[in-house]
């Protein structure tokens, strides 16, 4: 239902900058995959391609076996700084999708209410985005994607702008949600801990040109929580990934 496939994908920007070179990469149904790499490695480009925001230059790409031509509610995107519409309050932001899709009110309203409750936003329906903290805003950003019942969540460094404490609680919240929903997730990050904690697979990327150099399966049992960060398994994976990234760095 929510599979992502890239084969021999290249992306060149104006001026001939090669952002992605020959990327072959698959995300299976219900899988949580993290794309990990330094800035400029093309990890966000990869996400923008499958979201339908950008066109690929070469190769093929499909979502559920169908070619991707434009953005759509089957792929819920969570942006780095939430990118909520600032003139709409929390409730209006969350029901924007169902509303423009002309879904019946009786259909989406209970769902939106429930998601906002799970997100801890039930007291903030009337608040404008500017009145919320960064973490709260991103909760709204996730709620807005989930209310559309997407087949995949595409998350572009969603917690990158948050302070360490808030980031931990957001990671825990996402783990809880995902462990119940089990939707496919493509999660872009530059934070090694975050990638290991959340994902089933961590794909390590390198820059100039952007490529996936290693695809590591994280066999830490679920359900996971913040406590996972201090287990021996976690440390082993972290050492492995750090060595990989350092190796790539030395290679350059």
């Amino acid at each position: 239902m929510g599979t992502i496939q890239f084969s021999s994908v290249c992306k060149t920007y104006h001026g001939g900058v090669l952002a992605l070179e020959n990327v072959d990469f698959t995300v299976g149904e219900g899988e949580f995959v993290a794309l990990l790499g330094p800035s400029g490695c093309g990890k966000s480009t990869l996400l923008n391609l499958i979201a339908g925001f950008e066109k690929l230059s070469e190769g093929r790409m499909s979502f559920n076996g169908n070619p991707v031509t434009k953005p759509g509610p089957d792929r819920g995107v969570v942006f780095q700084e939430a990118s909520l519409l600032p003139w709409l309050n929390v409730w209006e932001n969350v029901v924007f999708g169902p509303k423009v899709q002309n879904i019946a009110r009786d259909d989406y309203e209970p769902r939106a209410r429930e998601i906002l409750r799970v997100m801890g936003l039930e007291k903030f329906h009337e608040a404008l985005p500017v009145q919320l903290s960064g973490g709260m805003r991103q909760r709204v950003g996730i709620a807005r994607a989930l209310v559309m019942q997407p087949k995949a969540l595409l998350m572009d460094e969603p917690f990158g702008a948050l302070d360490a404490q808030t980031r931990l609680s957001m990671q825990e919240l996402l783990l809880d949600i995902w462990q119940t929903l089990k939707t496919t997730v493509l999660f872009v990050t530059h934070d090694i801990d975050e990638a290991i904690l959340l994902a089933d697979r961590v794909c390590v990327m390198t820059a100039r040109p952007g490529r996936i150099t290693r695809d590591i399966r994280i066999d830490i049992p679920r359900p996971r929580s913040i406590d996972t960060l201090t287990t021996g398994d976690f440390t082993t994976y972290k050492a492995m990934i750090m060595a990989e990234m350092r190796g790539l760095h030395a290679h350059h």
Partner: peptide
Amino acid sequence: EKNWIRAALMMGA
């Protein structure tokens, strides 16, 4: 802002 338009497109606008 580009991401406001992208967000709306993603939501099916």
